[in-house]
């Protein structure tokens, strides 16, 4: 029998892959080597000029990148800790377990942009209910206009929106754990706390790594929350990489330059996520 026709069946998938993945990446690389902007649209070749500008003359990009790193690492850590705590809580036999399981998933089912609009209203400094309540205690933080506090506002909204996803993954992980090691640990004299530290947590390591990586990838794309909540402000204090690239590319139409930033960002993300995954595996799985 001739099996050459197997390649024939690969074509549809391959076409889609080339069309939506490989072509755009190659096009972005080519675009980043051009001076495409609103005055000179077109793929004129200007060499590495955009990259030189990015690495030598654009601190705003790097600031937004480090801001992004801070925001995504902080939100993911918080999401992991809170998500694990909630998952652990409804994993045990507690009253209204089903109710809580659904309740904790609600934020994930809402539309992020609309929820962010609602959060913005919540945190409005003079009209929002948060400051209305806090004013009873004599404080009124500038949730959206203070450069430092605004970052934490973004973190709060992100954590609220995406902890359920972490919760879902970790609960699935907990439910799939074998029961036997827990029986053994109890008999071996491990108190509930030690049981968590020495059995639950290590057994959850593989799924934890997966969940953290997935959330890091998602969190580092953060865009809608910033866009709606602060528009990167005050000043550039909540501006993240993707938001900055969006401003350069789709507001100022510096397409070539935005493409060079996108590509640089992609490379950095691939390298850093690989390192993070390796390090997490080493720490959590001791391999």
């Amino acid at each position: 029998m001739n099996f050459n026709h197997k390649y024939f069946f690969l074509f549809p998938g391959l076409f889609v892959l080339i069309g939506i993945l490989i072509f755009p990446i190659i096009f972005v690389v080519r675009l980043s080597l051009s001076g495409w902007n609103s005055y000179n649209p077109g793929l004129d070749y200007i060499g590495l000029e955009n990259y030189i500008r990015l690495f030598t003359d654009d601190p705003r990009f790097w600031e937004s990148f480090f801001r992004l790193s801070f925001l995504s690492v902080t939100t993911v850590i918080l999401q992991y800790v809170i998500g694990f705590a909630l998952a652990h809580m409804v994993w045990k036999d507690i009253k209204f377990k089903r109710f809580f399981r659904v309740l904790f998933l609600v934020p994930m089912m809402t539309t992020p942009v609309i929820m962010t609009v609602i959060w913005r209203t919540f945190f409005h400094e003079s009209l929002g209910p948060v400051n209305d309540l806090l004013s009873n205690f004599g404080v009124a933080p500038k949730w959206l206009t203070d450069p430092v506090i605004a970052k934490f506002t973004v973190i709060i909204v992100e954590v609220w929106q995406w902890t359920p996803f972490m919760f879902l993954l970790l609960l699935a992980g907990l439910l799939s754990l074998p029961k036997e090691p827990f029986l053994a640990a109890a008999i071996d004299g491990a108190s509930p706390i030690r049981k968590f530290i020495y059995v639950t947590f290590p057994l959850m390591a593989p799924i934890s790594i997966g969940a953290i990586i997935i959330r890091l990838i998602e969190a580092s794309k953060i865009m809608d929350t910033v866009y709606v909540l602060t528009s990167g402000g005050p000043g550039t204090s909540t501006e993240t990489s993707s938001f900055y690239i969006f401003i350069k590319g789709l507001r100022e139409f510096q397409m070539g330059y935005a493409a060079s930033m996108s590509f640089t960002y992609l490379i950095i993300m691939i390298i850093s996520l690989t390192i993070i995954a390796k390090v997490l595996t080493k720490i959590l799985l001791k391999e």
Partner: peptide, 11 residues
Amino acid sequence: MVYQQFINYPH
């Protein structure tokens, strides 16, 4: 306790 299933800590 030793169980009929071989219970150990897989990790």
